[in-house]
Structures are given as structure tokens and as C-alpha cells.
Design a protein around this nucleic acid. Structure first.
Lengths: 205, 205
DNA sequence: CGAAAAACCGAACACTAGTTAGAAAGACCG
DNA sequence: CGGTCTTTCTAACTAGTGTTCGGTTTTTCG
């Protein structure tokens, strides 16, 4: 009679979840079959139902993991910054954290971004909250910096946020470890977004 | 005995293609069934095979249309610019054209970007050429402007291109006509990428 | 050890997938 | 009108889908 859920089950459940993330990422929601997921996890199809009620519950769990990992990593990273950190520093940290999370949980991130549009509406609705919450973190970073006069007042922050998240999420598709480092990418992106790529006005050619 | 392919067939073929783009976009590669596509096109499933050999041929055609439309629109837009157009003007035109194409051909664009990762490898390989060609257009715009001293020499153009395309392609997911105009989005994005969102150094708060 | 609980398997069920082939309907022209 | 293509439908086939469930194996723990 144990008070906490048994260990064996948790391990197996995690293996199933990891396998599901990989298969969903490669084959999409409908293309990922329970039999292939089971094989990837070292089980038979019927056994998946011991851990997850249905295929929908599985994809729901995958989406949860990806999004929650991003939110927690972002909160942790921002919490370690000193209170006097500038908006520029905060934004750079957010860039670095987002890219790092996406690459570290690559299977989940890619599965999430690729499959989100194909998932049954009921499941998608449940995860809209998480998405909105994450968007709010970014909104705060940008708005605070603008209010403090660090970011220009004439830039549309909503547009800026959509640009940033679009660019960052896309990294999951092209980033190959070993080539460029995650920090290089994050720093480079942050520099472009904050300072632009054009030669500043009033500079001799 | 007509020399050109009959009209009826062409019309029907286009209806099938449009329907396929919508269904692929909403349900993914595996989730889009021939029966649903046929219904969307006002046909029965078996009749699709009169126009396309297989489901793979259908998705291949959808990918083709989306990518070719983007390439042609971009070439046309850049060709209308005067030869003395600045790099800034070229880049802004490219932004506008890309977003406009994505929104105008929304079904094909979204189908392409969502389904590309799930399509059989053989089909994907065939379309990598088109993708690379499109990337080359952007590479040229950026490299030329940098060589002319309009863009800073210390920015990594590959990184800039990946940021731009990631951000632009993401617009297909969130842009809703009627709210912001396509031009507003393109101009706003171009301004951020070229000039940044931070207050320039040497400016009093 | 041995019994209870947990974890997994195997085979089946109802259903749907892509695809095919032959018949039917529609369009066109003398 | 008849005849010839073109286009669509109907009906089927095989293979594979998510899911269920009774039984078998493995683990846990007194």
C-alpha cells in the first residue's frame, strides 16, 4: 500500500510520452498510429491504454509537456535576473531561454508546433490558456521596457511579439546542434530585433 | 479533336486542388482523407483519381502551387522596382510581397507550412529545390544591400534571413483580414528588422 | 514464499483508409 | 439522332485504424 504512485509506471509512462512526441512530430496527428508509437516505446499497442485513456489524451499530454516546459524555464530564467536588469537584458535572456527550451525539448516543441493545427478542437481549446499565459510573459517584458523608455514608443509591441515568437519557433525546424551554438543564435536574433540590421542614420558610409 | 486540354477537366482539377489545400491544411497529410477532399470538391472519392494518380500526387501538386506562387510573385514584385531602388526599399517590397502572397494563397501557404514535415520523404526531396531557390532570392537581397554598405557588416545574414522567414511565415497562422492591413504588418516588420525596437544609442530618454 | 496489485500481451471488433474497375452519365460533333 | 470521348459514380477489395477485454506475466510487499 504505497502512498505515491509506483515508479515503474512513471518510467514507462515517460517512455510512452517521449515516443509519442517523436512520432507525432514526424507523422502528424492522424499519421501517428498507436501501433507505431507503441513500437517506439517498446510496447504493444494495447498496452498504451494502461497509461493513457486514448490517443487524444496522449496528444494532450504531449502538448502539455512542451508548453509547460517553456513556461517554467522562462519563469526560472527571468527570476534569476537581478531586479535592476535592463529591458535589453531581460529580452536577451528570454530569447536565449526560449531557443534553449525549444532545442532541448526538440521532440515536444516540434510536435507541438506541427501538430497543433490538426488536433481536435476540444484539445486545442484546453491549451489556448497555456499559450496565452506564455504570450503574456513576453508582452510584459516588451511593455515594461517600452514604458521605461528603453524601447521606442512608436513600435507596435504586438507586432514585435509576433515577429519574435515566429522567428524563435522557427528555429526548431532548422537548428542543428554543432553548427552554431544556441547562445549565438539567441544573441544574434536579439541584436537584430533590438538594433536592426541597417546602418544607423547619420553614419558615414 | 482539340489541340488544347479540355476546359471542363481543368476547371474540375482546380476545384479538386483548392479543396485539397483546405483539407490538408486543416487535417494534416494523413488526416486528410480522399473522401473528405472529394466531398469538399463536390465529387466522390473515386473520381479524384481521374485528375490525380494518387494522394501523394495531390499533395505534391498542392506544395507546388504554394511555392511557385510565392516565387513568381516575388520575382514580379522585385522586377517592378527601379534599378536604383535601395536595399531598404527592396527588402520592404519583399516583406510586403511575401506576406501578401501568404495571405492571398492562405490555403496553400498554410497547407504547405503545416504539412511539409509530414509528407513522404520522396515528395519532400523534390520540393527542396523550390525552397532553396526561394531562399536564394532573399539571400541576394540581403547580401547586395550589405555589400553596398546599407546593412551593417557585423550582422550574420544567414541568421537574419532565418529570422525574417520564420517571422513572415508565422503570419499565416495569426493574420486575420480586417484587423490590421497586410501593408501595415509588412511595414511594421520591415521597420523592426531594419531599425530595431530599441531607442538608438546617444538619444536622451 | 505467496497473494494481491500492477503492467503488459494477444487477438479480436467495428470501422475507415487508399485505391481500383466497370458501369453510368455528360459533352461534343457529324 | 448515333457514336465517341470525357468525366463521374458505384461498389468493392485489402490493409490498417483506434480501441476493448480476458488472460498472462511481472512486480511489490507483508
Amino acid at each position: 500500500m504505497m502512498t505515491k504512485p509506483l515508479a515503474k509506471s512513471a518510467v514507462s509512462q515517460k517512455r510512452v510520452l517521449d515516443a509519442a512526441a517523436r512520432i507525432f512530430r514526424d507523422y502528424g496527428y492522424a499519421g501517428a498510429t498507436m501501433r507505431v508509437i507503441a513500437e517506439e516505446a517498446g510496447l504493444k499497442a494495447g498496452s498504451l491504454y494502461y497509461h493513457y485513456q486514448s490517443k487524444d489524451a496522449l496528444i494532450g499530454a504531449v502538448l502539455d509537456v512542451g508548453m509547460n516546459a517553456a513556461i517554467e524555464a522562462m519563469n526560472a530564467a527571468l527570476a534569476t535576473l537581478p531586479p535592476e536588469a535592463t529591458g535589453r537584458q531581460r529580452l536577451e535572456a528570454a530569447f536565449r531561454t526560449h531557443v534553449a527550451t525549444i532545442i532541448a525539448n526538440g521532440d515536444y516543441s516540434l510536435a507541438t508546433s506541427r501538430v497543433y493545427g490538426q488536433v481536435p478542437a476540444a484539445i486545442r481549446a484546453q491549451h489556448e490558456k497555456l499559450r496565452d499565459h506564455y504570450g503574456l510573459i513576453w508582452r510584459n517584458i516588451l511593455a515594461t521596457a517600452q514604458r521605461h523608455g528603453e524601447f521606442r514608443g512608436d513600435v507596435n509591441l504586438t507586432l514585435a511579439r509576433l515577429l519574435i515568437l515566429g522567428a524563435l519557433n522557427w528555429t526548431a525546424e532548422w537548428f542543428k546542434p554543432g553548427n552554431r551554438s544556441i547562445d549565438d543564435v539567441a544573441r544574434g536574433f536579439a541584436a537584430i530585433v533590438m538594433d536592426g540590421i541597417a546602418v544607423p542614420a547619420g553614419t558615414a558610409s
